[in-house]
């Protein structure tokens, strides 16, 4: 177990800045979710911590010791790859025991520890199977077992669940959290799935174009996203900008939003109300309903306000009585407005 810290990490590939001055602390024993759209530098950051990527500048510290002179094989990390990277020529037990074999752990102890960790990931009887004889979820567990059996100082997971189908993914999220709690290893978890990051992490960091936009506990970041990118990326938020006036915020179409705290505000998709008749609420807008998407218990309405796409999410009955398309009224409570800085 260890604290991992990065200080001013920069990595460029040609004209791309894959990492742009990343300074971040990953707390001891915590579960840190790195979140960002594809190409935002998540994998590069993880690989820089592992030692596969040599940063152009900046440093990585594990337990306050700089590791730039420590090669990957000596960094005492555990890593789970997106495709699991199980050794096809070895059995499950061989895969899991590989790190112990490399460390010259005596055979008897090796066997005991492999059995122990296979039990932990609930694969007790499958030690003799080859990787190709396993299902996707089982492979994921083997990869996890292989990474933690050596008791690494840091566990690095690069989108470990993205290859699984949705129901299995949810099940494995719970499993992952349980295993991480039991072993207590500092874990850094990369995902582009905001729900996954919010569910699993004690801390999240949001990356965009190689820069760290925001970090903190998931609830805090979610409730108070501060910048437009985080607001839109974490939970579906609708942005409104205008000119502040004494009475509120004057939008481009002349609507006055009373009580708006900043020049740009966000309203979450689930906080937007849609009605056919003009509502009594003080905050209201005229918008055009473009499409209604039915998705089981919850539905989504896609709207258009002066050329800006908006989104509203609600239970299907909330949208009953709305036409498939046409002009509607939007309204929200002033408490649901999230203040944002310019971004």
């Amino acid at each position: 177990m260890a604290v991992v810290r990065t200080e001013g990490l920069v990595k460029t590939y040609g004209a791309t800045r894959a990492l742009d001055d990343i300074t971040l602390t990953f707390p001891d024993g915590g579960f840190f979710g790195l979140l960002g759209p594809s190409g935002s530098g998540k994998t590069t950051l993880l690989r820089a911590i592992a030692g596969f990527v040599i940063p152009d500048s900046g440093r990585v510290f594990i337990d306050d010791a700089p590791v730039e002179n420590v090669p990957v094989e000596a960094r005492e990390i555990g890593m789970v790859f997106q495709n699991y990277a199980l050794f096809p020529n070895m059995t499950v037990a061989g895969n899991v025991g590989f790190g112990l074999e490399v460390r010259k752990v005596p055979a008897a102890e090796r066997k005991r520890r492999v059995a122990e960790v296979l039990d932990l990931v609930q694969l007790g009887e499958l030690g003799d199977r080859k990787p190709h004889e396993l299902s996707g979820g089982q492979r994921q567990r083997v990869a996890m077992a292989r990474a933690i059996v050596t008791r690494p100082r840091v566990l690095l997971l690069d989108e470990p669940l993205s290859a699984l189908d949705k129901s299995l993914r949810v099940e494995m999220q719970i499993e992952l959290k349980r295993i991480q709690r039991e072993v207590g290893i500092t874990t850094i978890f990369v995902t582009h799935d905001q729900e996954e990051a919010l569910t699993l992490s004690d801390q999240i960091g949001i990356l965009r174009d190689g820069r760290l936009v925001r970090h903190g506990p998931p609830r805090e970041v979610y409730d108070n996203p501060r910048d437009p990118f985080t607001a839109q990326f974490l939970g579906e938020a609708n942005l409104f900008s205008g000119t502040p006036e004494p009475g509120g915020l004057r939008l481009a179409d002349g609507t006055l939003i009373p009580g708006a705290p900043t020049a740009t505000i966000a309203v979450r998709a689930e906080d937007l109300r849609i009605t056919l008749d003009e509502p009594a609420a003080p905050i209201r807008l005229r918008a055009r309903l473009r499409q209604r998407i039915f998705a089981g218990a919850m539905g989504t309405c896609v709207l258009d306000w002066r050329g800006n796409p908006l989104k509203a999410i609600g239970r299907d009955q909330d949208f009953a009585g709305l036409p498939a398309q046409g002009d509607v009224w939007l309204s929200w409570d002033s408490a649901d407005m999230i203040p944002l800085s310019e971004g």
């Binding site: 990957v72 094989e73 790859f81 990277a85 590989f98 790190g99 050596t150």
Partner: peptide
């Protein structure tokens, strides 16, 4: 042989 296999082995401490 996928390069990630070699990387996985390195991450496990193999020279």
């Amino acid at each position: 042989i996928d390069d990630s296999l070699i990387e996985a082995a390195r991450s496990l401490g193999a020279r």
